[in-house]
Every structure is written in C-alpha cells, then in structure tokens.
Amino acid sequence: MKAFRIIKRSIRDSMKSVFRNFSLSLASISCITITLIVVAISIVLSYNVNNFTDIIEKNVTMVIFLDSDVTDEQIENIQKELKKIDNVNTKTVKFIDKMSIADDMMESSEILKSVMEDYTRENSPLQDTFQLKVKDINKIDKTAKKISNIDGVDLVKYGEEMVKKLVKAFDVVRKGCIYIVIALILVTAFLISNTIKITIFSRKREIEIMRLVGASNINIKIPFILEGLLLGLLGSIVPVVITIIGYNAIYDHFDGVMFSQFIKLVKPEPFVFYVSLILIGIGMIVGMIGSYRAVKKYLKI
C-alpha cells in the first residue's frame, strides 16, 4: 500500500514538475526533439542505403556452364549437388537448356538465326547452363570454386572483378552508415542527458529538502527518473510524427524509387514504426539516464 502510494505520488509529482518548471522542461524537450530528428534522418538514410546495396548484391547472378557432352542424368546430378551447397539460394537455381538459348539468340537477330539454324542439340557450340544466386556475396569466391569442382561443370562465371569492387564499395558505405548512426546516437545521448541534468540541477534545493525531511534515496530518485522519462517521451513525439508522415510523403512522391528503377526505397510500413520505436526508446532511456546521473550527484555526502 505504502509503495503504491509512493509510486502514485512519484508519477503525479513528475508530471507536475514538468509543467511547473515549464521553461526548462521546454528547453530539454526541444533539445531532445532536434537531436532525435537528426537521428531519425540518419537511420532512415542508412537503412535505405543498406537495403539498396543488399538488393544489388542479392541480384548478382552466377552462370555455370556445363561440359558440352553432359547427359541428362549428369545434369540432374549437378542440380542436386548445387542445391546441397550452403551458400546457394536453392530457389534461384535454374537450368537453361542450350537449345532454348539458341532459340533466344535466333529470335534476337536475323544474322544469328542464319548461323544457328543448322545446329542440332548434338553439335551445337553452345553449352547447357545453370543460373543461380548466392546468399552471401562475400563467400561467392569459395562457392564458385566448389561448383567448378563438380563433375560435368566446365566453367563458372559471375563477373568476378566487378563483384569484388562492388562488395568492397558497399562494405565501406555500410560501415560508414553504421558508424554515423552510432556516433549520432551517442552525441544525442550526451546532449539529452546533459540538458536534463541542467533541468534537475536547478532543483537542487528540492532534493536537499527531500533529504532533510527523511525521504529515502529511492524515494527521491523515482520522481526525477520518471520526469526524465517523461521529458524523453514528450521530446520524441515530434520526431516520430515527422518520421511517419515525412517518410510516407517521400515514398509516395518518388513512387518508391530514387533516381532510377534501380534504387528501391524501403516500404514505409512497418519500417517507420520500427524507427519510431527506436526514437521513443532512445528518448526515454537517455532521459532516464540523464536525470539519474543528475540526482545521484546530490545523494552523496
């Protein structure tokens, strides 16, 4: 009963003091709002960059040329072997018959048609192929080697040089994004917790009186920590609204793609809600930490 009353009083007091010290609360809230907006933008940007690089990497196709004299039985075997390899995305494994390749070629130009027309399956210079995509592009080298060791496989092609450059470049971009987001979150945490600290410091006398009249440390801490939490929560409202409305607007405006069909934006739902949760979480936790740090300073002799 007593604990319940203390909690009730803490909640009531924390709300009261947010409004009683309105100018300082407003300072804290706007600081939280501004920094969280920056964090929101960086999260949205970096997640989109990540998403875009992922899509490109997932689309790197490996082509496997088979020996020209493979039998149907061998082809089936090879398919089984391919699907056994860990890094191979089994759904993407596709067999392309050399005759269908020939058909395609003949369709594409008259000259090719006249050249290819005379060949049958037995004497065709073309090769049967498998096409597939890998799960992890970083291991594409090893996967290619494994595949070329399978009996009946002649050649594995996947644009090695281009892929290597792509992987390297994307790695830099991704790591850069993550570092920027982490740095921003840390700066935000520091800024917010310091602003809240100042808010609490101005109430040194209140804490001193609480101590004087015999409030236990926990009794003193709870209202202030709740106040920090409340400030964080209030400060994250505007960033959350901006994220949800802003991202949806951008997505609609560009029809889900940027610059070209190649760069697809992440779908707003549920993405914006995750970002919102992250923002609210940062606001509340950092707000609590800030006020905890401030109060702690006055609870020591």
């Binding site: 007593k2 009353r5 009249v213 015999g214 009794n219 003193i220």
Partner: peptide, 8 residues
C-alpha cells in the same frame, strides 16, 4: 511535502 515523501 515532508509527509508525502514518507508515503502517508
């Protein structure tokens, strides 16, 4: 205030 912090 002195009594509230004691949870009366």
């Amino acid at each position: 205030f002195a009594l509230e912090v004691l949870g009366l």
